[in-house]
Amino acid sequence: MKTLPPQINAILESVSDPEIPVLSIMDMGVVREVEVQERDVFIKITPTYSGCPAMDTIADDIKAAFAKEGYEAQVKLILAPAWSTDWITERGRKALEAYGIAAPLTEEADKEALLGNKKIVKCPQCGSTHTRLVSQFGSTACKALFQCEACHEPFDYFKCLK
């Protein structure tokens, strides 16, 4: 995506994923295209998962954030190319970890972790990799549930999606 005018970028940065409030939609990588024509803004976003119930809220939040600054935003949902966890920015990954969600591993490592073959997912609380898979599916479509065997804290792992 080309560099955006600072004000537009700041408005988009102010909108976050309603299920992970520390993660802005820009750091999440769901904003795919932005076009500004004076006070009209055309935005294309892509869902993380097909059934992600946050998408409607995100679209409404984008419109509201732009309206507050005197813009009229139109938001369109696009499916191609399909979202990948690679699009989460470095800052986004750090925000996830600070929030207590383990950031996605590489595709290969992810598979080993979710099959319970290897202990490689790092506990966001204490940093130990002595963790175990509790459930392949978690509180939202994008997460799996782990538990740390060092500090015993349960935590979410953001699954790798490519």
């Binding site: 059934g51 119930p53 459930s135 392949q136 599916f137 978690g138 479509a141 549930l145």
Partner: peptide, 16 residues
């Protein structure tokens, strides 16, 4: 765990 899994799968299918 299976409850969460089956409903997550349901949600994916509904989204599709």
């Amino acid at each position: 765990e299976t409850d969460i899994a089956t409903t997550n799968i349901a949600l994916d299918l509904l989204g599709q």
